[in-house]
Simulated assay, not measured.
Amino acid sequence: MVAVEDGCVDPEERHYESLQEVMVHVTEAKVRERVDDQQLKHAIRAMDDRARILK
């Protein structure tokens, strides 16, 4: 893993956590751009709330 080997992220587990966090945010942003479905918007807000609570 280049990021771990280069010392940008330590340890490897944290790298995967960071990558997952980034991908969730990117996915949420893309969904928000394209969707008018209220249920989906509520689900995304619930995910955001969960993330804030678990921090």
Rank of each mutant, 00 (worst) to 15 (best):
M23I: 11
Q20I: 09
R32L: 09
M47T: 11
R32N: 03
G7W: 02
E12G: 02
G7R: 08
M23G: 00
L40V: 15
E13H: 04
M1G: 11
P11W: 04
R32W: 05
K41N: 08
E12I: 11
V26M: 11
H15T: 00
A51Q: 05
R32H: 08
Q39V: 06
R45A: 13
V31Q: 00
Q20K: 13
A29K: 14
V35P: 00
R52E: 12
K41F: 01
A3F: 05
Q38L: 15
V2Q: 06
L40H: 06
Y16E: 12
Q39F: 09
V35A: 15
R50L: 12
A46G: 07
R52A: 03
K30A: 08
I44T: 03
V9F: 07
V9K: 01
K41W: 01
L54V: 01
D10G: 05
L54R: 14
K55G: 11
A51M: 11
Q39P: 00
R32Q: 07
D49V: 07
D36E: 14
R45D: 15
L40M: 13
H25M: 09
Y16N: 07
E17M: 13
A43H: 09
R50A: 15
K41A: 13
A3S: 06
D6T: 13
E12S: 09
A46C: 13
R45S: 06
I53L: 07
V35L: 14
S18N: 12
R32E: 10
R14S: 06
I53V: 06
R32F: 04
E33H: 04
D37R: 14
D37Q: 12
T27V: 07
V9E: 08
A43N: 13
V26K: 14
D36N: 14
E17I: 09
A29I: 10
V24F: 05
M47H: 03
E5R: 13
V31I: 15
D36S: 15
L40E: 05
E13L: 03
H42D: 15
V9C: 14
K55W: 00
R34T: 12
H25N: 11
P11I: 06
E33Y: 07
R45E: 15
D10S: 10
M1S: 09
E17R: 08
V9S: 10
E33C: 07
K30W: 06
R52W: 03
L40T: 15
E17T: 04
V4T: 12
I53Y: 03
E17Q: 05
E5T: 10
A43P: 00
V31G: 00
R14I: 00
V22D: 01
L19H: 04
P11R: 07
M23S: 09
A43W: 11
M47N: 08
S18W: 02
G7F: 03
Q38T: 13
A29V: 07
H15G: 01
T27N: 05
K30S: 07
P11S: 08
V35H: 06
A29M: 10
K30T: 02
V4F: 05
V22W: 01
S18E: 08
V2T: 10
C8M: 14
D49H: 02
V22G: 00
A3H: 06
R50M: 10
A29L: 10
D48T: 10
D6F: 04
V4H: 02
H42E: 15
M47W: 01
E33M: 08
R50Y: 08
A29N: 03
D37S: 10
P11G: 12
H42V: 03
L54S: 11
E13R: 02
E17A: 13
H42A: 15
V4L: 05
L54A: 06
